[in-house]
């Protein structure tokens, strides 16, 4: 038990902060309730997937600046393919787009390994490349999404065995998030491959000496990031009904959530839970500012400042860790 608390101490603290923020929200807006939570979960969804993608690359000791662009590529691909197609065809589209995400991530990873150029530079170049690819697929926002896909993240779902009073508080968007992340993360985290990802980010030399195939592990980490980015792109198309070729503000938000979530930018440390809670915290801050009728543009400034401050604090922690 104490072991669990110690290991997840940061995430537990973040969760307390989230609850505190929810209480504050309730105080600001006494009417805030199940529907508010529902829209929070929907708004957080793309950010959460972008963050999950960033988490795995950062744990492996890299960073992926091209996540938002990959989301744009998958989003427009899905929207363009589903435009005028049948509802059933959407299943094929979903599978294709997920594979596309994996392929893009693998390309990123292979380029990092082959060129020996630092991750941050390679993925900066790929940010532009994937952005260009998205623009080639759709020059302006457009396309369509299947109705059943749009429905997946709207409203609440009945869970057998649970009374309606409880399920009313569990939005479908949250379930989608938990299922999609869990299906990839849980088996990975416990596997030898998952351990290898941590090992490579923690100490590449020790990992090599422990018999880990360092380059292969890096490529896998980027590929999984691509998969999560594809999920994020799909979610974008599902919530807006169209695909937009210009990447959203997901890159910096993902880095900030990663840092706030307790994942060290140097690699090797942290989990997925903390950053995901951090995403909800950052979204809820925005909601609160809106509820307080703060100018949305000022909200953007405040949000940006929070992220920069979080990253600076992360830098401070890393500095102190190094000198200790």
């Amino acid at each position: 038990m104490t072991q669990t608390v110690r290991r997840h101490g940061w995430a537990i603290g973040l969760f307390a902060l989230l609850v505190l923020l929810l209480i504050i929200t309730k105080l600001i807006q006494p009417g805030y309730g199940a529907s508010g939570i529902g829209s929070l979960a929907r708004a957080a969804l793309p950010f959460a997937f972008a963050t999950a993608a960033q988490v795995i690359v950062v744990i492996a000791g890299g960073i992926d600046l091209s996540i938002a662009s990959m989301m744009a590529v998958t989003s427009v691909t899905a929207a363009a393919m589903m435009d005028g197609a049948s509802e059933e065809f959407a299943v094929v589209v979903v599978l294709f787009v997920l594979l596309l995400g994996i392929a893009m991530g693998m390309i990123n990873g292979i380029l990092v390994v082959l060129t020996r150029v630092p991750d941050i530079v390679v993925t900066l170049a790929m940010l532009f490349v994937w952005e260009g690819v998205a623009l080639l697929i759709l020059r302006a926002p457009g396309g369509a999404a299947a109705e059943w896909l749009k429905g997946i993240i709207v409203g609440t779902a009945g869970i057998p065995g649970l009374p309606a009073e409880i399920t009313a508080w569990i939005p479908k968007a949250l379930l989608v998030l938990v299922v999609c992340l869990g299906i990839v993360w849980l088996p990975l985290r416990r596997s030898r491959l998952g351990l290898s990802i941590y090992a490579v980010g923690s100490d590449a030399l020790a990992a090599f000496r422990s018999g880990v195939a360092v380059n292969r592990t890096k490529v896998v980490a980027y590929a999984v990031a691509g998969l999560f980015a594809a999920m994020g792109g799909l979610v974008l198309t599902m919530s807006t009904g169209i695909g937009a070729p210009i990447p959203g503000p997901y890159l910096l938000a993902s880095v900030a959530a990663v840092v706030l979530g307790g994942v060290a930018l140097g690699g090797g440390r942290g989990g997925l839970l903390g950053p995901i809670i951090a995403v909800f915290i950052l979204r809820l801050v925005r909601t609160d500012l809106t509820l307080l009728s703060v100018d949305p543009n000022i909200t953007t400034v405040i949000e940006g400042t929070i992220m920069v401050v979080v990253v600076i604090l992360g830098g401070l922690v890393a500095l102190r860790g190094r000198s200790a």
Binding site: R192, L195, S196, Y198, A199, G201, S202, D203, A206, A207, S210, V212, G268, R269
Partner: peptide, 12 residues
């Protein structure tokens, strides 16, 4: 591996 616990280091 500095960031893994002993058990995970053994499994690795």
């Amino acid at each position: 591996i500095p960031d893994l616990d002993v058990a995970d280091n053994l499994r690795l």
